[in-house]
Amino acid sequence: MKKTITICITFLLLFTSFVFASKDDVSLTEYTLLVEGQSIQFDVQPQFIYGKLMLPLRTTLEKMDYIITWNNEERAVELSKGVNYAKVFIGKNSYFKHKMAPFTLSSEPIIVDGRTLVPIEFFHEVLNIYFEIENSQITFYPNEDVDTLVTHMGYVSKINEAENTVEYHLSNDKEDEVHLIIHATKETIFQNTIKEGDFIRTVSPPIMLLSYPGQTRGIIIYK
């Protein structure tokens, strides 16, 4: 009887996975990665997992002279470069930076074919690495004296769609007036589906249009 129940449960799990899996759950991406002009060669490629752009952690950061250590007991990856230190736990959306309290991103780290992948915003939010995205090419500038990217956040009070851009009007509270307008373009990476009322975070360039409310471009948008 126990054997029959076990077989039934196993079949149910397999069937459920089959029903809810879709071609969008895991798919390779055409994005190429460079570090200061030099391309990165991967054994596990950058890919979209459940709609989120995930990048290989070790291969990308070793190109930037980070030391990567696998902690098998905690199932965690520790990374360091000079005074910079961070720690990520596989399967947990909880990221540690220096001695700060842990915070969340759009996804937990995921292992694919023995490699740890993290969401693209990790490189800014955790390591404060500057990068640019253009024509499906992501270029990191870890050692140059450049302006850092910035993170904006707020509740989406209104969404305006135009021909080549989508405007996200943000407020500090759902009842407050709009304090910032984020412009999303074809280059913007959406890690989540965004709707009015959502609390979102955007990775943006340091330049902002001096208007009221302020306006800037969204490089990455997630919640």
Rank of each mutant, 00 (worst) to 15 (best):
M1T: 10
T4Q: 11
I5W: 07
T6V: 13
I7L: 14
T10K: 04
L12S: 14
F15C: 15
T16V: 14
T16H: 09
A21C: 12
A21N: 10
S22T: 14
S27L: 08
Y31R: 00
T32Q: 11
E36H: 01
Q41G: 00
V44E: 13
Q47I: 06
I49T: 05
I49N: 04
G51Q: 11
R58W: 05
R58M: 07
T60F: 00
E62G: 10
E62S: 10
Y66N: 06
Y66V: 07
I68K: 01
I68R: 01
N72S: 15
V77H: 04
L79A: 08
S80P: 06
G82S: 09
N84F: 11
Y85V: 10
K92V: 02
N93S: 09
S94M: 11
H98V: 06
H98M: 14
A101T: 08
A101Q: 11
P102F: 10
F103H: 08
F103R: 07
L105M: 09
V112G: 02
R115M: 01
T116M: 12
L117D: 05
E125T: 02
E125H: 02
V126R: 00
V126W: 00
V126D: 00
L127P: 05
Y130T: 15
N135P: 06
I138Y: 02
I138W: 01
I138P: 02
D145S: 12
D145H: 07
V146W: 03
T148K: 15
L149W: 03
V150Y: 07
V150M: 12
H152M: 10
G154Y: 07
K158T: 06
I159D: 01
T165S: 13
E167N: 10
Y168Q: 03
H169V: 02
L170K: 03
S171M: 08
N172P: 05
K174S: 13
I181H: 05
A184H: 04
T185A: 05
T185F: 09
I189T: 03
F190W: 13
Q191R: 07
T193R: 13
K195M: 08
E196F: 03
G197M: 06
F199Y: 15
F199M: 12
T202I: 12
P205M: 07
Q215V: 12
T216N: 03
R217E: 14
I221D: 00
I221K: 00
Y222K: 01
